[in-house]
Nucleic acid binder design. Structure first.
Length: 543
DNA sequence: TTAACTGTTGGAAAC
DNA sequence: TGTTTCCAACAGTTA
């Protein structure tokens, strides 16, 4: 079979795997020589926006990919430093490559980057091929199926009217049979004009990127570790078939869910491979299975839901100018000293509520917390207790989580803050009661807040209520060795519900005013006018 | 148009 | 110890 290209570059971004990688396979099918390339973009290689934990996970993933390319295909991963839109045109023209393949990406930064790149590549006479393999379906296809191209906000109707109309989910593609590449020496004889990309340096260490040295982590990055994790869970057929997310514990000492999210985020594990693995278990398992939304395949469907919603929503990651987001007058940490202190206490796990603080410490140490733990701390930061804008929560999670996924993270924050998708603001997580349901003894708190480990279980969730004698006996004085609670939950949560009620009333008033205006002006056709204008007048004083 | 129904995962008290 | 009931009551969908 003759191939129409001599040299192709397969650019790894997400999709950091060899299995089910249609873009890589397309490169192998069309070109004689393939350059597997990763680019360390300074936009991401940045201690301010990516935690050391997640960067370590990424570097482990790159290292695993490199090893697999060497051992299975006799090639390697080439790692360049620089901005992709600068690096790629230079490499392409040095190597005289005529094909560039990569996996499609829906995030705004990636969309803008890829669009500019595609134009640039065309001017070099390079064919660009994007393949959809990060999600179950091509997100643009799902977006096109959305009625009036409106972002979905209700899961069940998304499934009914959008997802189930998209046809069957593409089957994972096979591994490449071979990947013929260039040796580093050959590569370097081609690439003579780009010394600053440091390709010969290979995969960097954390220190090279300005991070502290790597430390042991519960979750090892990479396709190999990800597939092993997936397989070991798929082998527990009864557990897989009966899985119901709301029934798993946020404060289990070993994770009560799969922790495949970091691997799905980086594409170490293919969502489709996991999907079909699950379907195989459901098919062969005797007895009933749980169903979406709470089942494991239901979790993958949530992912499609948020990706589609994010793709169709302008200004998705902010409140202002975001058409699906309630406009709420949150207390601003930039102008309120108290709110800024509160935000900092929340980030550092020093709120004085052990359940909240233990979660925030686990997040910092391990880079992963259970979904319901995310609920508890997100509710606490926003409508539950501190009444701080969810955007601050997004930013902290975006920095700290191994699985930080823009579409899902932002969506969950809007959900929890009752800004979109979920509106029952009077249902509020208690920072004291919620954790007790699954951990009466407070073992989770004892693990992550060792200063409290000797507290009697009666007081472990609210240590400030313990008599001084007991505090002394436990070796931890509240206000000295562990903070006093920064707010009185009962009082602020009631106050916040009132504020939420006001914000909702205002929203409805604006909506109705908009309706009236439209009907009186004779329905001039122009849609979506309701986005702005809610927060203008009448400033409440909140401090 | 209206009204009933539904929405992945609440808390606290009563049984 | 586990299940039921009340609390106070929103938005989006469907009949």
């Amino acid at each position: 079979m003759s191939k129409s290209h001599t040299i192709a570059i397969h650019w790894f971004r997400k999709g950091l795997r060899l299995h089910d990688n249609p873009a890589l396979l397309a490169a192998c099918g069309q070109a004689t020589k393939i350059i597997p390339l990763f680019i360390l973009d300074p936009h991401f290689a940045n201690p301010g926006t990516v935690s050391p934990r997640r960067y370590q996970f990424l570097l482990e993933t790159l290292s695993d990919l490199d090893t697999n390319l060497r051992e299975k295909y006799g090639t390697q991963l080439y790692v360049a430093r620089g901005t992709p839109n600068d690096v790629l045109p230079r490499i392409v023209s040095e190597l005289k490559a005529t094909l560039l393949t990569f996996e499609a990406d829906t995030e705004p930064y990636a969309r803008a980057r890829d669009q500019a790149l595609e134009i640039e590549m065309k001017s070099h006479g390079v064919k660009v091929e994007q393949h959809w393999s990060h999600t179950l379906h091509d997100i643009t296809e799902l977006a096109n199926l959305c009625p009036k191209n409106k972002p979905p906000t209700v899961y069940q109707s998304f499934l009914k009217h959008v997802f189930h109309k998209a046809g069957s989910i593409p089957k994972p593609v096979p591994l490449p049979t071979s990947i013929d590449s260039l040796t580093l020496q050959e590569f370097q004889t081609f690439v003579t004009n780009v010394p600053d990309m440091s390709i010969e340096k290979g995969i960097p260490s954390l220190e090279e990127l300005g991070y502290p040295a790597a430390t042991p982590c519960a979750f090892q990055g990479g396709e190999t570790a990800g597939l092993e994790r997936m397989q070991s869970h798929l082998a527990r057929k009864q557990w897989i078939a009966s899985f119901e997310k709301p029934k798993t514990a946020p404060n289990a000492l070993t994770p009560s869910t799969t922790v495949l999210s970091p691997y799905l985020k980086f594409g170490c594990v293919s969502a489709r491979t996991f999907w079909y693995g699950l379907q195989e278990v459901y098919k062969t398992h005797k007895g009933p299975r749980s169903l979406p939304p709470t089942s494991l395949d239901g979790q993958l469907l949530w992912r499609e839901f948020y990706y589609t919603s994010a793709y169709l929503t302008a200004n998705y990651d902010q409140m202002k100018g975001n058409p699906i987001c309630r406009q709420i007058e949150w207390i601003d940490p930039d102008t309120s000293i108290e709110a800024s202190t509160h935000l900092k206490a929340w980030q550092e796990g020093k709120t004085g509520f052990p359940f909240i603080d233990a979660i925030m410490i686990q997040l910092k140490q391990e880079g992963w917390i259970h979904h319901l733990a995310r609920h508890a701390v997100a509710c606490f930061l926003t409508r539950g207790d501190l009444f701080i804008n969810w955007e601050h929560g997004v930013r902290h999670f975006e920095w700290a989580l191994l699985d930080a996924d823009w579409s899902i993270n932002v969506g969950n924050w809007m959900w929890l803050s009752a800004s979109c998708y979920f509106y029952q603001y009077f249902r509020c997580y208690s920072p004291i009661a919620f954790g007790k349901k699954t951990d009466k003894n407070g073992d989770y708190i004892r693990k992550y807040l060792p200063q409290l480990k000797n507290y009697p279980k009666k007081y472990i969730y609210e240590p400030w209520t313990a008599p001084l004698a007991i505090q002394k006996e436990a070796g931890c004085i509240i206000g000295v060795d562990y903070p006093e609670p920064i707010v009185e939950h009962k009082i602020v949560s009631k106050r916040n519900m009132m504020w939420m009620k006001e914000a909702y009333a205002k929203h409805n008033a604006n909506k109705n005013a908009g309706k009236k205006k439209r009907s009186s002006s004779g329905g001039s056709g122009g849609s979506g006018g309701s986005s702005s204008s809610s927060s203008s007048s009448s400033k409440k004083t909140k401090r």
